[in-house]
Design a protein around this nucleic acid. Structure first.
Lengths: 184, 184
DNA sequence: ACCCTCATGTAATCGGTTACATGATTTA
DNA sequence: TAAATCATGTAACCGATTACATGAGGGT
């Protein structure tokens, strides 16, 4: 009974969970202001996701007629939808991702994640970053001085920096969260 | 006569240009070792791209029978293909991209880019990074202290760091390239 | 008067991932 | 001798982007 949905579906559920009932248009705007930097979603996709989630019973839609503006459809999380979201946040295995990071998406909904699970995720993220540092440093060292590999070398250096940032950030957040661990 | 291809197509052309004739398999392996950190491509996609590029006359394919291993098809850049690649590198407008950066892909093939154009790209990249710093800093400042926005705040901080890295990196590379500007 | 933006959504296309296939060679 | 791995590729599926559509209101 799991139907395996992509992260974007849970992004939609999560945003609905934070802001309450919204139209597809508003949800898109909210996504643009919040998760777009690490998990961009286009408007069309939001609509399609909402339709699917409704078919699956994870959200409900209600038509709202308007006179000035086009009629709209307001979506809300169902009990089922909340449970699916929370299940995903707890069970979705961490994956080392080049490109978009599903971890950051989960992290954004950190309020819903049990603290120990959150620590586990952060730890995995930090270790993945450390692995990236290692891999990219190896590439840098392998390419240093090779004239033909000039631009690859420089690009890899940017990669190393970004990976270091992720590592440091994860470490700091782990500490910050450890400082105030109260939770139900 | 331009047919507008996606960046991935030019990635394939560029890699062929650097290493010379290759099979799809080898090209994938090469991509994994080189551009994968900022522009991952899957094997299947490489094959499809090669087929399309051949249809368009930008690469040629030749079957090579093997006895131990499965027969393969070796692809090579055509004159047309090189021209298309170089045209893209020179004309493709810089775009501020969340997620995969087409700029980094272009930069990787920097040897093929005329120095002044390369400087222009780097400058645009640096300015985009500065804009990101600004935007994300505004978000951070807007969210600081708001308990409900805790995780969004932390996520935005990571974004600021990454943007700072890009900015500093671009500045340094601009300087490094200025130091040795010889070119035809 | 005209164009742009807001507010809402649908439809078509396409890039990218995942699953499927296969035979030789190495490893446990 | 059974199980990975290598080396090659095809086919099916699905997520995501781009294009299309519409009507009110605000700006020049």
């Amino acid at each position: 009974m799991d139907v395996q949905l992509p992260p974007t579906s849970y992004a939609v559920l999560g945003l609905l969970g934070r802001r309450g009932p919204m139209s597809g248009y508003d949800l898109t705007a909210y996504a643009d202001r919040s998760i777009a930097y690490f998990w961009p979603i286009s408007r069309s996709l939001v609509y399609r996701e909402l339709a699917r989630l409704e078919r699956l019973g994870l959200v409900t839609g209600t038509d709202v007629p308007q006179r000035r503006l086009p009629d709209k459809r307001i979506y809300d999380l169902t009990r089922e939808g909340e449970r699916a979201l929370d299940r995903w946040l707890v069970e979705n295995p961490f994956e080392r991702d080049r490109g978009r990071s599903a971890f950051l998406l989960m992290f954004f909904f950190g309020e819903r994640i049990p603290p120990s699970r959150l620590r586990g995720l952060l730890d995995a993220y930090r270790r993945a970053a450390e692995q990236d540092i290692e891999d990219l440093t190896a590439i840098v060292e392998h390419l240093v001085g090779v004239p033909r590999a000039r631009f690859g070398y420089l690009a890899a250096q940017l990669g190393v920096r970004a990976a270091r940032d992720r590592q440091e950030w994860a470490r700091e957040v782990e500490l910050a969260l450890a400082a105030e661990p109260a939770d139900p």
